[in-house]
Design a binder for these strands. Sequence first.
DNA 1: CACTTTTCTGTTATCGGTAACACGAAATAT
DNA 2: ATATTTCGTGTTACCGATAACAGAAAAGTG
Lengths: 323, 323
Amino acid sequence: MTTLNDVAKKANVSKMTVSRVINHPEQVTEELRALVHAAMKELNYKPNVMAKALANNRTQIIKLLILEEMDYVEPYYMQLLVGIANELDKHAYGLQLVTKRNTQIGDSDGYIVCGMREADYEWLNTLEKPIVLFGENTHGYNFVDSDNQKSIERAVDYAISLDYERIIFVGVDVNEPFAISREKGYLSAMERHNKYVSMFRLENRSKYSAAFVRENWETFVPNTAFICASDRLALGIIREVKEQGGSIPEDFGVIGHDGVFLDRIAYPYLTTLKQSVDKMGAATAQLVLQKINASGSDQGNILFDTELKLGGTTRLKKNQIHT
Amino acid sequence: MTTLNDVAKKANVSKMTVSRVINHPEQVTEELRALVHAAMKELNYKPNVMAKALANNRTQIIKLLILEEMDYVEPYYMQLLVGIANELDKHAYGLQLVTKRNTQIGDSDGYIVCGMREADYEWLNTLEKPIVLFGENTHGYNFVDSDNQKSIERAVDYAISLDYERIIFVGVDVNEPFAISREKGYLSAMERHNKYVSMFRLENRSKYSAAFVRENWETFVPNTAFICASDRLALGIIREVKEQGGSIPEDFGVIGHDGVFLDRIAYPYLTTLKQSVDKMGAATAQLVLQKINASGSDQGNILFDTELKLGGTTRLKKNQIHT
DNA sequence: CACTTTTCTGTTATCGGTAACACGAAATAT
DNA sequence: ATATTTCGTGTTACCGATAACAGAAAAGTG
């Protein structure tokens, strides 16, 4: 491995100059800068991350805290992880995963936290390094999330544009900001369209949404769309509507939310609001790193739009050809 | 942060002695050892990983290479990752994820590789640090995997013990060791039971196994069990058997393989061979670390047994009560 | 008892970087 | 023209650990 020193000799300068070229190039004359760059290229110099970390009193490690029980972890976590890890990689940062079971967490330069519940916030305060959350929150932590409200609004608009008469919202029964935002999206869109609202909250498992359909089947009339706050719930709806003999998508439309993996498991493929989870992961990583470099100061939040991904659980628009 | 030096002062020894207590305790008298330990505890000393890494010319980083296209990545990767990451954490190692898109991979102390295809081996040889594969292989790389052959053998045995008359194997159509081992398991069990084999290979997607059932429905007679090489294939089988009006589990049994996530998506829950993916991940991590400490020398392989996890897609045994 | 060997602990140099200071040369001010 | 500042670079010390060597004390030997 070539070191700063090797480059310095090659370029006939001190290693401090080389270091400066890398970290504070404006402090070095253009002439020397060019020399050093040439030497670095020629020797294929790669900085030693550990040495840098030691000198800067950094760890070059970001901890990813997953506070949910792993049993309930949605498949999109994998994509999230890949997004985060790839981004960190680019900046020579390593990732350490911390799940609920690891009680003690070692040293790091910053944290990314997912699966937060209200109960966790107090504990979160005890962490001393910059923190970014994956998922909206009302506690002032910087976060990255989908624009949940807008997302559901669009789903409602879309369902209505397909001439579904009744629009039912099947939400998840947790008192968390993302769930509330999705409900808000439903309510505000319904108000815009001047329609009667019909909203339910269920635990986020397909068997509960299936049971929900079974128990209320008689109250559902054809030409209804179910807007679901998760693909998981949507899956149960589809299953039981079919079971009851309802026809999808003619009499009953179903739109899910998340668009990672589960929507492709459904048959037919689920129409869903797809989150760009990998991009969101990358953005989250960037946000922590940014926050670290800014000594932990506020860096704002980032909201991503979801993408309406059409499957076979909603009607085609007039004149539309199925792809 | 307390350093070696702080501890040394507290214990009235040189920092070298403290370092020895940590790394080569047998070289230090019991007396001093106790002193040092007391000082470490009192000051709550945590070694600085970066400094250690620098001194040892290590990076404290393991790269996880995922060579599959992320679209096809099974949900169990998440569990695997958690298993690996938790284990690395314990040993102060960080994880870096490398997917196919990152062409150039930075420095690390070792590699864990998953999703290997035959075509990748040549490239793999160019890596210079210890490598452990997740997944059996015939190229001499140390690996961790499930005992695929034994696993399917047990599935066949179990299906027969439930008095299913015909046993059909639905394998995945790739020429990889894991797939071949699973086929072997089927063939050897069938031979033991002296039964006619009936084996198929399909691309690993539920729509293909569903199509398979649809196209061959007339050739299937009641009292048949489908042993599938993946839960994904099993899902398609269930879906189409139901569609065709076959009754599960009375006339048709279905057993999947993997037991992560997908089996719980199925309705009814799938009977499947569950891999302890998180434990396997931990074992994989241990194996690389071990290999690193042994300067890359051969460390053997580790095979895990799968666990038969009963769902509603197989009959109950006589006298068995459904839990 | 003197002489070698072993055992234990401390000293020094090093890993590959960076910050803080030092210092000569060039630029600006008086 | 001299005093003062700015600029650009090199020197030194240090981040927190470890290996290699050094040297004193203890143990073993004849």
